[in-house]
């Protein structure tokens, strides 16, 4: 299945080392990967295995110590600010902690307005912009009239994360990196966030790179799964392959760590 589709993002020997000497940490250790257009890829690993670091490398927010990244078949070039801006029209992210993802001094309107401007809508009439923002909010079941002139910290964690999805709705990137988007919010909101994320993927047909420590969740959403242990990809393949027939002890441990309820709910439905 994967072979027929075009590769949109791939990497060879990608490595990130923090610090020197005693404080030296190899956060990402020579990983190779190929993400295909339109698929949902999960990167699963326990906390501290280097998932966020890899995500930031993929986003171009930090430079890898070693290795190459290829974007749409070509070596990624984001050396100038202009090229970075161009790259970020294609790849966007939702971060783990919604409470620290927003600038507390800027209103919600300006967060959404930035997205319209980034898509070249700077000169649109104001009414049109408001209509676009309202539509994006409606998509995640928020009311723009209630959000306008408010600050992000006045919202709940779940609402903030939904606003993040609304942001992606406006930006319509080719690739979305979601770094544990549900881990910091209350359990009730998790399922809805996940649903909106999947709806959005279907609506704009983007590639979704889903980062999680919960292998049950990965199984539930993804086509392809990469298992990450201490900076390395120890196993990868289709979701069924990896989770139903795990080869590595680490993967088996991750599966056994999933609470029983998930196991019954997910694995018994196959």
């Amino acid at each position: 299945m994967a072979g027929e589709k075009r590769v949109c993002l791939s990497g060879m020997g990608v490595t990130k080392i923090f610090g020197f000497g005693r404080t030296r940490t190899v956060a990402v250790d020579h990983v190779d990967f190929k993400f295909h257009e339109g698929e949902v890829v999960s990167i699963v690993g326990e906390s501290g295995s280097g998932k966020t670091t890899l995500a930031k490398i993929l986003l171009g927010l930090i430079n890898p110590t070693e290795g190459e990244i290829y974007f749409q078949g070509q070596k990624r070039d984001i050396r100038t600010h202009r090229k970075k801006q161009e790259y970020w029209k294609n790849i966007q992210a939702i971060f783990q902690d919604p409470f620290s993802s927003y600038n507390i001094f800027r209103k919600i309107d300006s967060v959404l307005m930035d997205c319209i401007h980034m898509r070249g809508g700077r000169w649109l009439p104001h009414a049109k912009k408001v209509e676009m923002m309202a539509e994006a909010c409606r998509f995640v079941n928020l009311k723009f009239e209630e959000l306008t002139n408010k600050y992000p910290f006045e919202l709940s964690g779940g609402q903030m994360q939904r606003l993040m999805i609304a942001r992606i709705f406006l930006l319509k990137p080719k690739i979305l990196l979601a770094d544990e988007p549900t881990s910091m919010i209350d359990a009730c909101s998790r399922a809805t966030i996940l649903d909106y994320l999947m709806d959005l993927r279907n609506a704009i047909g983007m590639t979704l790179i889903f980062i999680t420590h919960d292998i049950g969740l990965a199984y539930y959403v993804s086509d392809t799964v990469y298992i990450m242990e201490r900076g390395r990809f120890v196993e990868y393949g289709s979701a069924d392959e990896v989770i139903l027939r795990p080869k590595q002890a680490y993967t088996r441990r991750l599966i056994s760590d999933v609470p029983k309820i998930y196991e019954e709910w997910d694995l018994s439905t196959v």
Binding site: H81, W88, A93, Q96, S100, N103, I104, D114
Partner: peptide, 21 residues
Amino acid sequence: RDHVNLSKLSGHSIPYIILTD
């Protein structure tokens, strides 16, 4: 911090990020 990362992803320039984020 993530709010700075988000600002970068929103295409803001370095002076703008320094001044607002």
